[in-house]
Simulated scan of single mutants.
Amino acid sequence: MARKHGGREEEERYKPRNSVKGQVLADFIAEFSPRATSITCVVEVRPWRVFVDGASNVAGAGVGIVVITPEDLKLEHSFRLGFRASNNEAEYEALLAGLRVVMDLGARKVEVYSDSFLVVSQVQGNFEANDPRMIEYLRLAKQMMGNFETVKIERIARRQNRHTDSLATLASSIVDEVPRLIRVKLVPEPSIAAKALILQVTEAKRY
């Protein structure tokens, strides 16, 4: 049926009630039906947290590491250094050992926490390394950090790193013949030694 309105002819169309309901249902299905286009879900991946500390005393040197996985699982490691090391060298060994552990576990995003002002400052680029051994340690640390997608290193207060410090002290003063519940591994030579450098370069090429 048609009628005139404002000098123009408008056509009114009437649809049966069932036809209107059918169209509403069709529109609803079309709106919520899966489309061919893909949907990308962005999942936030939490980083691995690594707390490291090195200790050096008259009895020897050791490294303590506490790794917290993205699932909040805590892993503890102690490494006894089988060579004489200064406190700064032990701190670098702690950083390198921590990076090796999480690299072996497949971590891609890492946050490292250390109470060593010198190590953190040199890695962050705030201080230059002048000592030849510190230069080698810094070079190796940055090389290993390149194996990860992201690595952030931060300095924390010693009181926030007490547990890791205890593991490092344990490893530095342990006697081989005394059984321990915590497994303490041996680092036989400095990480910047020739053999260790060759090993690290080989590992870096695999990733």
Rank of each mutant, 00 (worst) to 15 (best):
G106H: 05
L81C: 03
M144D: 00
Y113I: 04
A26W: 14
S121W: 02
L140G: 03
V123T: 02
E89Y: 04
N87S: 14
M144G: 02
F83K: 11
S33Y: 12
V45S: 15
A26V: 13
G54L: 00
V43I: 14
Y113E: 10
S116I: 00
L96H: 01
V42L: 13
E91I: 01
K74R: 15
A30T: 14
T40W: 08
E31F: 08
S86F: 03
E91S: 05
T40H: 13
E111I: 05
R46V: 05
E91Y: 02
A36F: 09
L25C: 10
A61N: 05
G146D: 08
V120K: 04
G64N: 07
E44A: 10
N147G: 13
Y137A: 02
R49V: 07
A55S: 14
S56C: 06
K142W: 03
A97N: 12
E128Y: 06
A107Y: 00
Q122D: 05
V24P: 06
R100H: 08
V50A: 07
G62H: 04
L105S: 10
M144T: 01
S33N: 12
R139I: 01
E76Y: 06
D115K: 07
A36R: 12
V123I: 10
L105M: 15
Q124C: 08
Q143S: 10
P34C: 05
V42M: 11
M103E: 15
E44K: 13
D72Q: 13
R139Y: 04
F79N: 06
A61S: 13
S114Y: 00
V45K: 15
D27Y: 13
S121N: 15
F79A: 05
T40C: 10
L25I: 13
G82L: 03
D131P: 01
V66W: 02
K74H: 10
M103C: 13
A90V: 04
